[in-house]
């Protein structure tokens, strides 16, 4: 149902998490076969994006840190992977 309690404008954080959720799904779809951690990462990001107030627990940050090899894309990684890892890293700050 319509929820008027969320302040305007669309919280940048909500839009950013929705963007990262889409990127994570795309990366999992394209690269999950060669990089299984990306499939797990998409699940984690999807859970975070759906959490109330988009809260991110320390354990989630730790899991993302591990799945992304400390936010380090593999050498030949594409732009989507790099954008995803950079966005997830920025969430820490």
């Amino acid at each position: 149902m319509h929820n008027c309690s969320i302040p305007e404008p669309i919280a940048d954080r909500a839009a950013e998490l929705s963007r990262l959720r889409l990127l994570a799904r795309k990366v999992a779809l394209v690269h999950g076969g060669h990089h299984p951690a990306m499939t797990e990462l998409a699940t984690v990001v999807d859970r975070i994006a759906g959490a109330p107030q988009n809260a991110i627990a320390d354990t989630d940050h730790a899991q993302i840190h591990q799945l992304t090899a400390a936010y380090t894309p593999w050498p030949e990684a594409c732009g989507s992977v790099r954008a995803l890892f950079a966005g997830l890293h920025a969430l820490r700050s």
Binding site: I10, A11, A14, A15, E16, L17, S18, R19, L20, R21, L22, L23, K26, S80, A83
Partner: peptide, 11 residues
């Protein structure tokens, strides 16, 4: 593309 889809999904 992803940025706009993210905004659309947040709305």
């Amino acid at each position: 593309h992803e940025r706009l889809l993210g905004i659309a999904d947040a709305i």
